[in-house]
Design a protein around this nucleic acid. Structure first.
Lengths: 198, 198
DNA sequence: CCTACCGATCGGTAGG
DNA sequence: CCTACCGATCGGTAGG
């Protein structure tokens, strides 16, 4: 067995597991369920993965890595207004999710089943990511682009709530592209529902 | 044993179970965990409740009933602008959640573990509730209060995402009252982050 | 990737 | 509300 085919089989196990974790939840999804979906015996899974939790770990941290990379790309850009920076951050987040909606849903809903110290590491990454979006919002408040009257915590939590639920209702077969959806989401949060006075 | 004390004990079981379900998730929370928290044996739980799922059922449908009652009160009001109606709907939703943040978190995260036909009933209630908020948004678009350029589904899903994550970050000991938080949330979604042109 | 299997734990019942 | 217990299922291992 070559290394390449072994990696590919492991990735297949993880991909099918992601679907199962999303459907039933991590705890309710059994290794026997997973094996059946793959057409093998449960014991055979362990020649590809070390444990059930390893699968969850890979899913959560691979997503986290992609989110971080996307954010860093936006942060490195020069001469952006706060609105532009926030918009591009949101678009990047949506694009990362759209690349794998199943893994995104697992990332969002099942990460709490990670054991320590992985759970702590995960939560630290998340709080760091959120804080960096919070900085974008604060920059906009400081330079007058955004209202200073809005509670910063409320603003950033509303932003993340909106982003994180997207995997639960976004239809990947729809005509709308991730970047467009991200732009619409950004517009809604920045400009609001209300008709602009003309 | 009087009926009153029996009901009270059952309610206590359900309340402690809600905390456990929120902490560990419905599937990972065992009846032995629950019994231990209550200081009794696992088998003794069944003199108060019929099954583990009965607890989840009560938690989910009691919350659903409260949400519906709150919405109906807003719908029955006359002479409200779309913004006002939406704001009051949001405030009502936040107030219902704030009355029991633990049950709200279970309602949001664990309802999918309901078995049929209860899961179907639950999802029908939820889609009905969401659609009635969607009608408020559409009314605002129709009368010119809200932009027609925003995708209705995106708007209502953003609204619900924001609302439903609140139990995960709202600090009940904070000075901010639920009605005020609801108003802030409504302002953010209706008016957006951007500074109004003056 | 399989057969055979393990100890642990699950929700729940019988009977008091 | 307890003791005693049940059948089912869990994640995982040994050995091939």
């Amino acid at each position: 067995m070559t290394e390449v085919s072994s990696i590919s089989r492991k990735e297949q196990v993880i991909r099918v597991a992601a679907e199962l974790f999303r459907e039933k939840g991590y705890v309710a999804a059994s290794m026997r369920d997973l094996a059946q979906k793959l057409g093998i015996e449960a014991a055979s899974l362990y020649s590809h993965i070390k444990s059930k939790e390893e699968i969850l770990h890979v899913l959560c941290f691979d997503m986290a890595k992609d989110f971080m990379a996307s954010l860093e790309k936006v942060e490195s850009k020069q001469n952006l207004t706060a609105s532009e920076r926030l918009q591009q951050g949101i678009i990047g987040h949506v694009e990362v999710m759209a690349k794998d909606l199943t893994a995104s849903a697992v990332f969002m809903n099942e990460h709490r089943h990670l054991s320590q110290p992985f759970l702590r590491d995960f939560l630290l990454l998340r709080i760091n990511y959120i804080n960096r979006f919070k900085l974008m919002i604060e920059a906009g408040m400081a330079n007058g682009e955004f209202k200073k009257t809005i509670d910063k915590k409320l603003a950033v939590m509303t932003l993340f709530s909106s982003l994180n639920w997207m995997p639960l209702w976004y239809d990947p077969t729809s005509a709308i592209e991730p970047a467009v959806l991200g732009k619409q989401l950004s517009d809604m949060l920045v400009n609001g529902l209300k008709q602009n006075p003309t």
